[in-house]
Design a protein around this nucleic acid. Sequence first.
DNA 1: TATTGTTATACTCTATAACTATA
DNA 2: TATAGTTATAGAGTATAACAATA
Lengths: 160, 160
Amino acid sequence: MDRDDADSTTPDRPRISDATLRQFTGYTMKRAFNVVQADVNAVLEEFGLRMVTYSALAIVGDNPGLSQSQLAQALAIERPNLVVIVDELEGRDLVSRDRVPTDRRTYALQLTSEGARLLARATEAVRRHEARITEGLNAEEEAILVSALKKIEATDIRRS
Amino acid sequence: MDRDDADSTTPDRPRISDATLRQFTGYTMKRAFNVVQADVNAVLEEFGLRMVTYSALAIVGDNPGLSQSQLAQALAIERPNLVVIVDELEGRDLVSRDRVPTDRRTYALQLTSEGARLLARATEAVRRHEARITEGLNAEEEAILVSALKKIEATDIRRS
DNA sequence: TATTGTTATACTCTATAACTATA
DNA sequence: TATAGTTATAGAGTATAACAATA
């Protein structure tokens, strides 16, 4: 991809403006998150993980014994889609599905020792990715960024 | 429900923790953006638009006469995928594809008057959505939020 | 030889209905 | 009757290769 410069071979449109979209914080959130997502996916690929499989490991690690329905809700994905994710993690011996005697419909999910080890290594790599992404921010800026994002996340969306 | 609860409204499942993921600003960015995206998509649906078709209208409006390749680059999508988007917008008479005499390979994209009208109405609705989303933030918080996001967006990602 | 727009295609992600086995 | 997990499937979204027309 060649960059546009002030060369006469470029007809009349050297730079594309996104002024209308730039007035919106949500647009800037999307552009910033695209950069974060590309970098974190590259980091996780070294562990054979994607954002969703890493997140699943982290949630199972924080909540040993939870059910697939609970994990699906925590990841905000539909139950049918979670099945293949847990299949993959179980097939790689990172997560175990244990039957629950008190309710034989549900599985209790747990990290295997290998899953715990991979999660720990991946979490360290994601920490380094985070440091890279936020290196231009001082502590106060990052604190306000996080608190502002949490307020947006907590917005009570009302439909008209 | 057959278990005796201290609170009758409290479900019998414990709260799921996302403590490991919450240490990451990128995770909070994703959670916040999910809320923004759901709301803006609901807003745009009333105009028969999605985020990508609204963005395309906005970019064409800001850059009349640009080519499909330039629009694809501005939207960060591949050229083949843009074709169906422009097909849709052209089929609804929101955008016109005009032949360029100086380079007959390219199309000059422009809003039709109906496209300009729809863009203006949708932009007003998105402004109201933005006000809803950021209503918990004061001016300083929002300014720091935007500047922090722009710094993240500008992060120079280096691959090892 | 390179570029614009296009077709075809494939792979991922996501969403819904319906099934089974349990409760 | 309801719930957990599952299967099948369909719709988006996204990516690459290759082609015709044009430069």
